[in-house]
Design a protein around this nucleic acid. Structure first.
Lengths: 226, 226
DNA sequence: TTAATTATAGTAAAAATTACTATAATTACA
DNA sequence: TGTAATTATAGTAATTTTTACTATAATTAA
């Protein structure tokens, strides 16, 4: 039984949504890119295994992680072989969003690992393309309905930072900046810190922080940010 | 590796949301109620196993089924014992909504099985209460955002039937009937068959059917029925 | 025949969304 | 130094959607 992670990050400098892939070093699919995965260890929970893979590939402080789906058809892996329970390889997938700027790739002994823009993905091993696509759908939904963005933004951020994260993930047909601003501000869980930052030309922007307490009443409500 | 099902139905005559439970006939938790479950067979997909349990407990034509979550902490089952993969018992749960009026319980050799109203559930075996609660949350969301209702309504139904299903599942603080009607009708995927039915006193109601083709543009869009 | 009952249509006020315009505060550069 | 470009922010009018109702239609019950 294995855990496979779909790990996303947003490169705000280049406006790209990225997925973390590792190159397989053994058969089957040797040399192909795949999702980082692992077998679950004795006594280890699924979530613990998911965090462990992530920590083996990435040094990162700020992230959001949740279970995605379990893929377990009998023909998904050529390694298929009966075992004591009469089942074949099962993959429980998790999806994560991490802060790109902080994430340090851990490249141990020749293990190739890299970020890949969602637009130009290589062919993936196993059914990992399906898993990744499913993870992408979930990421979009999560962003629209949950405050996951604030797990990967810095503690203090501008509304432009927030907007850029949203529009990079959700694509072109996203609300315009002005309306996004007023909607978010009206919700009342973005607290203006009073501080300003200058980023290149133009009027300085206010730094906001996410007020988790003020967000509490929205928990588990269908709250749409788009 | 096992599959456990959270199977819901709506008793419209009594306005109750029901879950299907079976009484355990072996240790651990012997005599307690639990979700219907099974071990996955050699060469069987997870979904196939989920449909198989359902078919073993219930004769029913109309249903909706989807994967819920995988529960796999190392301490969830007292039966825990290491196996060849180094993992413990894992439960992949599925949730289903079936048409109550058609569903025939299959009671084989002394296997106790019954519908239980969500309000008055007994103590459940293992972590099945958690799984059931999670399934209930998912059911509410599904109903609000997807056309699952039409999988368990008869082919032709009145708007009152539809409203009753929604309000039974989603509870008291649900939109009023009049606004529910106009919202649904405006969406344009309910086709008036022209037929009328009399149900007790009052003006006869139109029978509608779900027009899957007209619904197509809404697929995967965040469509709120509430 | 009248009252009760259920289905359906419609509507006015409130709220939310959308597509903008205007203004403020900074940097870039001629 | 002054003017243009740039970015942030505020505001607003038109439209659409939602909400809380009222009115009317078609049937059964008495």
């Amino acid at each position: 039984m294995g855990v496979d992670n779909v790990i996303f990050s947003v490169d705000t400098a280049q406006n790209r949504l990225l997925a973390l892939l590792v190159k397989r070093q053994s058969e089957p699919y040797i040399g192909d890119w795949s999702l980082p995965g692992t077998l679950v260890r004795k006594g280890e929970s699924l979530e613990a295994a998911a965090y462990r893979i992530l920590a083996e590939k990435l040094r990162v402080e700020n992230l959001y992680l949740e279970q995605l789906y379990s893929f377990g058809g009998p023909h998904r892996d050529p390694r298929e072989a009966p075992d004591s329970f009469g089942v074949r390889y099962l993959s429980v997938s998790y999806f994560a969003l991490v802060r790109y700027e902080d994430a340090m790739l851990i490249a141990d002994e020749g293990c190739e690992i890299d970020w890949h823009p969602l637009g130009t993905l290589p062919n993936l091993a196993f059914d990992h393309q399906d898993i990744l696509s499913y993870g992408h759908r979930r990421l979009c939904n999560k962003l629209e309905y949950s405050p996951v963005a604030f797990d990967v933004l810095p503690d203090r951020f501008t509304l432009a930072d927030l907007y850029q994260l949203y529009s990079t993930v959700l694509g072109e047909n996203f609300t315009d900046y002005s309306n996004f601003r007023s909607r978010l501000l009206k919700l009342g869980f973005l607290a203006d810190t009073g501080e300003k930052v200058c980023r290149g030309a133009g009027r300085p922007a206010s730094l906001y922080r996410f007020d988790a307490e003020a967000f509490a009443p929205f928990r588990d409500k269908p709250l749409v940010f788009v």
